[in-house]
Amino acid sequence: MTLIDTSAAGTRALDELVPSRYAVKVGDIDVLVISDGVLPITAVTMATNAAPEDLSAWLEDMYLPPEITDWPLNVAVVRSGGKTILVDSGLGTEFPDFPRAGQLAARLVAAGIDPAAVTDVVLTHLHMDHIGGLLVDGLRNRLRPDLRVHLASAEAEFWTQPDFSRTVMPAPIPDVLRRTATRFLDVYRSQLRPFETEYEVAPGVLLRRTGGHTPGHSIVRLESRGEALTFAGDAVFQPGFDNPEWQNGFEHDPEESARVRIRLLGELAASGEALVATHLPFPSVCHVAAAGNGFRMVPATWDY
């Protein structure tokens, strides 16, 4: 990935035994997918409306533990038209119960990316595992004062009085989500650049509100020189390919989330465009194929 002018002067990029970043080109657009780590989640949260025996069979088929499984966290850095755009920011380091997540600040350094070079932040939504990184020292205190933060207007409005009545989350989580979103909006309010339905933040970088997961949940579609890639945020989870109607416990409107997921996966299967999503196994770059009444994830070949 060519991000020469985003690197801190005199800083040598760190390296890691296990890769935590993956570069891909979309035409003239540079994309760097970065792992923020993993966090444990109760497996039942991934399919709250599935029959227990069906979920157990799916977990076994995927070689995943039956009770607690690791949830990957992916963010992205996008370079287009002279702008450097951070898409989501991971969990941050303020949640001691999740010590293996919140790695973004260190991994930006490992990639040789200076946070002060980031011109824009795009947020798919305001759940804590997407905004927490922007609230911790090591990232927040190194960002430029004229940083622009893009999110759907409906998302900011939702978190003034969030409704958790249709979610199925572990008991402490709603209060933590509420507090984190409130704090984020207080800290970054003057830098927010809300949009209604669509907004092009840089050449070929289009934000589109989908709703469903949260009222303002949005995806990011990149397109350049006949190539395209969609960062889907939480519109797609790992079980959602072969079981797109399974509902995730973090979805504030489960039925609409399923409709969004089916529509998006259908579009990607028809077009052949690439997909990246927050909670798919790193680096999550893949294609979507139709398979019976569902879909299947086709991992992209690593290019190195």
Rank of each mutant, 00 (worst) to 15 (best):
M1Q: 14
I4Y: 02
I4F: 02
D5K: 12
D5N: 13
T11H: 10
A13N: 04
L14M: 09
L14H: 06
L17Q: 07
L17K: 10
P19R: 12
S20E: 02
A23C: 06
V24S: 11
K25C: 04
K25T: 09
V26K: 09
V26S: 13
I29H: 11
V31C: 15
L32Y: 00
D36W: 03
V38L: 07
V38G: 09
I41E: 03
V44N: 09
A47V: 07
A47E: 03
A51H: 11
P52H: 05
E53N: 09
D54N: 07
D54W: 00
L55V: 09
W58R: 07
L59Y: 05
L59H: 06
M62W: 06
P65Q: 01
A76G: 11
V77Q: 03
R79Q: 14
S80W: 06
G82M: 10
K83Q: 11
K83M: 02
D88P: 03
L91S: 15
G92S: 10
G92V: 08
G92Q: 04
P96S: 11
P99L: 00
Q103A: 11
V109C: 02
A110D: 14
P115G: 03
A117P: 09
V122S: 12
T124G: 09
H125R: 06
D129Q: 08
G132K: 06
L134H: 02
G138D: 12
R140G: 04
N141L: 02
L147T: 03
L147H: 05
L147C: 13
R148V: 15
A154F: 07
E155C: 07
W159S: 03
Q161T: 15
Q161H: 12
P162C: 14
F164P: 06
S165T: 15
T167E: 05
V168I: 09
M169W: 09
P170C: 10
P170A: 13
A171Y: 07
P172C: 06
I173R: 05
T180L: 03
T182N: 13
D186A: 12
Y188W: 02
R189G: 13
R189M: 10
F195I: 14
E196D: 14
Y199L: 13
Y199E: 14
E200Y: 02
A202M: 14
A202T: 10
G204L: 01
G211F: 01
G212M: 13
T214G: 04
P215Q: 08
H217Q: 13
S218W: 05
L222Y: 04
E223G: 05
T230G: 11
T230Y: 04
F231S: 00
A232M: 06
A232N: 04
G233N: 04
D234W: 01
V236G: 10
P239H: 05
P239Y: 05
G240W: 01
E245F: 13
Q247P: 00
G249C: 04
F250D: 08
H252V: 15
E256R: 02
R261N: 02
I262Y: 00
R263K: 13
L265I: 07
L268Q: 10
L275H: 08
A277T: 01
T278Q: 12
S284Y: 01
S284D: 06
A289H: 08
A290H: 07
G294R: 00
F295S: 05
R296E: 15
M297F: 06
P299E: 01
A300V: 14
T301R: 12
W302F: 07
Y304T: 11
